[in-house]
Nucleic acid binder design. Structure first.
Ligand SMILES: [Mn+2]
Ligand SMILES: [Mn+2]
Ligand SMILES: [Mn+2]
Ligand SMILES: [Mn+2]
Lengths: 234, 234
DNA sequence: ACAAATTTTTAGATTAGTCTAAATAAATAG
DNA sequence: CTATTTATTTAGACTAATCTAAAAATTTGT
């Protein structure tokens, strides 16, 4: 009746990793208070009761801190896991677009699967193969092997109201439909957006893209477009 | 109390796919009779009772035919799924070796994960990116998108007893240790093996590899080495 | 052809991950 | 500050995938 206890590195399951990533993204948005059960449930399309169950498990594994009725926060270990998953997701997206010729609106779901492949050597060799890219096809920063990533000094187009030139550097909405719409505007990462006029009434823009096509951009669309100033400063 | 029944394409789980692949490989070896519960259990390091459970599920899904106490066989659908998994496994192995510079003895476990990534477009684009390779880094044929693969007309080195030149074209043992040993012999796919003498007593060989190094090959090793005749015929 | 050995299945239990419905705690609004 | 509303947790149930132990079927050896 003797039991031998062996301490095995506790791996995270596919499911746990999805919770960890969701909590990380909610913390990025909130970056103040703890994340609520409900917010996690909404973001994963799960019922709150299921979330309560899982956060207990993650808390036992020291991946989050959890105070009943008061939400959760990732521990250092939890953040490391999250950044590793995000690193893999974004590197695979670069691979799919740059090497396999997928379009930027086609890669997210495949990367959702690939981000769970477990191999340190694989992700690092993939990183090298791709030339250690700093941004993914949607302009999101890619964490390096130590989890470091430089957040871009960009802002939403919807915060700009004066005539000026800005550079398109990222999106806040990753839906296929939205990305495809931007493609029809010939808007790609790095494109120059010249604001020709701002409509005070509906907050829409008339812009010229890459000195070529003149387009109309609604407030709704502008709010999901990230840009930085075209004047070297920043 | 009305129920709406929606017919959803029934996807195979990770676990089911591993059973399907195991059964396929056992059928390749046996290619006569049905595959026994026990053989599946051994090949997956699982208990027979668990296998019985799973083969009931696979039978319900029409992936295998199952007669209680008399083993299983893959249906057409089952074989298609198996070939698709094997296609993915071997294409990913090519990717890992050719593009990411992994060694041929390092790729199997990573490919075991990647083979379950679910995306028709991904596997076909990967195939194109790799130049539609016909063989993986271990000399195994890669099924095309219709599941067709040309079996090689090769034979085990241990069936050759006369002096002759043969070409190394594959392995029957995929263990890291074995593959590493072949590497120390400077034996790579395509290497020329000149049989200089065959020892009738212990069935070992003295050979010259690539017209360079003279090596000793035991019967045990020879039995896992696949070759074809270097004289154009075949 | 029958007894013994082997293989396979069944029965019952466990864990991860999910759900619904009910209970309870926290937040909000008068 | 209390009542109502909202959020969270608990309780109980289900499925997939696994196990052990026991029962049943098949195979083997004499
Ligand atoms: Mn994505
Ligand atoms: Mn992205
Ligand atoms: Mn392999
Ligand atoms: Mn292989």
């Amino acid at each position: 009746m003797n039991k031998i206890t062996i301490f095995v590195r506790m791996l995270t399951t596919f499911t746990e990793e999805n919770y960890i990533k969701a909590i990380f993204k909610l913390e990025e948005l909130n970056h103040k208070a703890a994340i609520s059960t409900n917010d996690i449930a909404v973001s994963l399309a799960m019922k709150p009761a299921s979330v309560t169950d899982m956060i207990k498990r993650l808390s036992d594994k020291k991946i989050i801190t959890y105070k009943k009725y008061h939400g959760v926060l990732l521990t250092k270990k939890g953040k490391e896991i999250a950044l590793d998953i995000i690193r893999k997701h974004r590197l695979w997206e670069v691979f799919l677009v740059k090497k396999l010729n997928f379009k930027w609106d086609e890669v997210h779901d495949i990367a959702e699967q690939l981000e769970h492949i477990n191999s340190k050597e694989l992700v690092n060799k993939l990183d090298d193969f791709l030339g250690n890219p700093k941004f993914d096809p949607h302009g999101d920063a890619i964490p390096d092997k130590d989890g470091k990533m430089r957040y871009q000094q960009s802002f939403s187009l919807s915060t700009v109201t004066n005539k000026q030139k800005v550079i398109f550097s990222g999106v806040l909405n990753h839906e296929t439909k939205f990305l495809q719409y931007l493609t029809t505007l010939e808007l790609n990462l790095g494109s120059v957006i010249e604001i020709e006029s701002f409509n005070d009434y509906d907050h829409s823009y008339k812009v010229k893209i890459n000195k070529k096509n003149q387009e109309f951009i609604s407030e709704q669309v502008a709010s999901s477009i990230l840009v930085y100033s075209a004047n070297g400063k920043s």
